[in-house]
Design a protein around this nucleic acid. Structure first.
Lengths: 144, 144
DNA sequence: CGCGAATTCATACTTTCGGCCGATTGTATT
DNA sequence: AATACAATCGGCCGAAAGTATGAATTCGCG
């Protein structure tokens, strides 16, 4: 459904571009436009199209996700805070209301490990309690 | 750091592309390659570059601003669950990440009272931990 | 007024959390 | 090889959270 639609849209866009190409080609021969300028125009147009396609392809999913829960993780914020994958997993799970033991079982590690990850998280989020960590994470938009 | 790196990478890619452009231009004049073929090549290359840039730019950091926090407290739900005013105040404050002591100070009562309210809340929300209570309250849309 | 619900508090007890150590392993990076 | 970091685990200890129980108030409402 969505895929077919995309194909059609991209096809139409391509056709339009090809038309533009021909148009410019015509002007090229008529007005003796310089080759460099012509190429520059083509390059700019196609780089824009490419960027647009890239954006569409990678943002399709995000857009639908947004309509569902209006949340998209900001990976930069995570990097800025130095929060690792494993730490983030623990963060997600305390936000679900799980205890250290439950998270340990879920992630197949010991509670000691969970505690270590939590301690790191508290440092990085400047929190003293798990509830505070959840709150701050939501403010920073790294949790829904 | 990462930003600067990106700039450099993009710059190098651009330079490379420009070199290719010149190379093809040269071949165009020498070998009398058809204009269409030349343009096609340019188009393909730049569309690829554009797609790549688009992918990089959007995949790196997912920024989604939209979310018109439309939260309206459902008083009916509170009544249905039998949650009292005071209990709800405590619920709000644990969601802010406060400790029992902090809530007690804020509401001018003792921690014993906070604990009592929390126990009632846990019963009514079917939770065993404050984090779980917060999670369930959000699911029930009685907390933003 | 009197009844029930809400709010308050306390004491004793168990469980969970969090801080503060230290340690090992594996994986990149240099 | 050396350095850095992520991920793992453990012990100890005090603080916080949560359970159970009982009881004293205050407040709304018929």
């Amino acid at each position: 459904m969505t895929f077919k639609k995309s194909i059609i849209i991209y096809g139409l866009a391509m056709a339009l571009l090809m038309g533009l190409l021909k148009f410019f080609e015509y002007r090229f021969f008529v007005r003796d436009m310089t080759l460099e300028l012509y190429l520059g125009l083509v390059a700019v147009v196609f780089i824009a199209l490419g960027a647009w396609i890239g954006w569409r392809l990678t943002h399709k999913k995000t857009v639908t996700a947004v309509s569902i829960d209006s949340f998209s993780l900001d990976a930069d914020e995570l990097k800025r805070l130095g929060i690792t994958k494993r730490e983030y997993e623990v963060l997600e799970n305390i936000a679900l209301g799980l205890s250290n033991q439950e998270i340990a079982d879920k992630l197949f590690v010991s509670t000691s490990t969970i505690k270590t990850h939590l301690s790191s998280l508290f440092l990085k989020l400047d929190a003293r309690r798990r509830t505070q960590a959840i709150q701050k994470a939501k403010e920073l938009r790294i949790l829904p």
